[in-house]
Amino acid sequence: MTASGTEARHPASNGLHARPASEVLRILLEAQVTALGALQLALPALERVADAAAASLHAGGKLGYAGAGSSGLMALADCLELAGTFGLAPERTPMMFAGGADALLHLKGSVEDDPALALADLERVQLVAGDTLLCLSASGRTPYVLAIAAAAQDRGVKVAGFANVAGSPLLERADIPVLIETGAEVVAGSTRMGAATAQKVALNMLSVLVAIRLGHVHDGYMVNLVADNLKLVDRAARIVSDVAHVSRDEAETALTHTGGAVKPAILVARGMTPEAAAERLAGTGGHLSPLI
């Protein structure tokens, strides 16, 4: 049987081990760039996923992530950033990673084939009807991911399936299939390379669009960030100063009145009371644009 998709032989891989280092690096870089090009055709699907995810979160529901191996690591990286960047509570963006925390230090392939583990993980995060789940698998046939997708759909959860192989089971099952057809890897089957790179960029774009839909990004600023270190405290003050068009001192004063929350601080810096700012933001669903 001839290998296909990510398992196929890349035309530039012949003799790779014997080529000069500079040429190997050039080939690898070109393959990564080419993989990103596959995202162009996936943009309409990503928009549909963003709409579903934003609707779930806006209604008070959850946006879950599920994956194994390299795809799971890409999902985890995106999931972990949502709290600090966009102020989304971690319990509302649960992650299901095959093998759990132990697998983060020593990846084990066997956990990818364990449907029972998948069902236990899904039970733990308690997704329900109205929630959205992102399921990632480069091959689109990882048993752990397929089991979670099927069981989540049985609960009324909307499943978005991300895979790099056309016609794969995950894409056929998903409510919103996202095909990122990156093709053969320079190191055959090593989906931590082109496939994972494209998946990570897809998730980067998706999470930003979701945040925009929720009003957590304004003029390219992360106006719903959680400032829990010195860098982010400084960033919060700069955001308030720039968006509200006030001095740094005025921005810092406004932030003290809102407990460090950026969105209401912007309105306070423009003359509202903290109470009025909170009320007006509630009326716009958290969007600043109608208020400034």
Rank of each mutant, 00 (worst) to 15 (best):
His58Lys: 15
Arg48Asp: 05
Ala45Glu: 01
Arg92Val: 12
Asp51Met: 13
Thr85Lys: 05
Leu73Thr: 05
Glu91Pro: 06
Pro90Leu: 14
Gly87Thr: 05
Ala83Val: 14
Glu91Asp: 15
Ala42Asn: 06
Met74His: 11
Gly72Ser: 04
Ala83Lys: 15
Phe86Asp: 05
Tyr65Lys: 07
Asp78Val: 02
Leu41Glu: 14
Ala66Gln: 04
Ala50Gly: 03
Pro44Trp: 00
Ala54Thr: 10
Ala68Gly: 05
Asp51Lys: 15
His58Leu: 12
Ala53Asp: 01
Leu41Gly: 15
Phe86Gln: 04
Ala68Ser: 10
Arg48Val: 02
Tyr65Pro: 06
Gln40His: 13
Ser71Tyr: 03
Met95Pro: 02
Lys62Asn: 12
Gly67Arg: 10
Leu80Gln: 10
Gly61Asp: 14
Pro44Gly: 01
Ala55His: 14
Leu57Trp: 12
Met96Cys: 06
Tyr65Gln: 09
Arg48Ser: 06
Ser56Lys: 14
Ala75Met: 07
Leu41His: 10
Gly72Val: 00
Leu82Gly: 08
Phe86Asn: 00
Ala89Met: 15
Ala50Cys: 03
Ala75Arg: 00
Ser71Ile: 00
Gln40Pro: 10
His58Arg: 15
Ala50Gln: 01
Arg48Pro: 03
Ala55Trp: 09
Phe86His: 01
Tyr65Asp: 08
Ala45Asn: 02
Leu46Ser: 04
Leu82Glu: 00
Gly84Trp: 06
Glu91Trp: 11
Asp78His: 03
Gly69Ile: 02
Met95Phe: 11
Leu76Asp: 09
Gly64Ala: 10
Gly67Cys: 04
Met95Ala: 15
Leu73Asp: 08
Val49Glu: 02
Leu80Met: 13
Gly69Ala: 02
Gly84Asn: 14
Ala68Pro: 01
Leu41Phe: 07
Leu80Ala: 12
Thr93Arg: 15
Ala66Tyr: 03
Pro90Trp: 12
Leu73Glu: 10
Ala55Tyr: 12
Leu82Val: 03
Pro44His: 02
Leu82Pro: 13
Thr93Met: 09
Ser56Asp: 04
Gly72Gln: 03
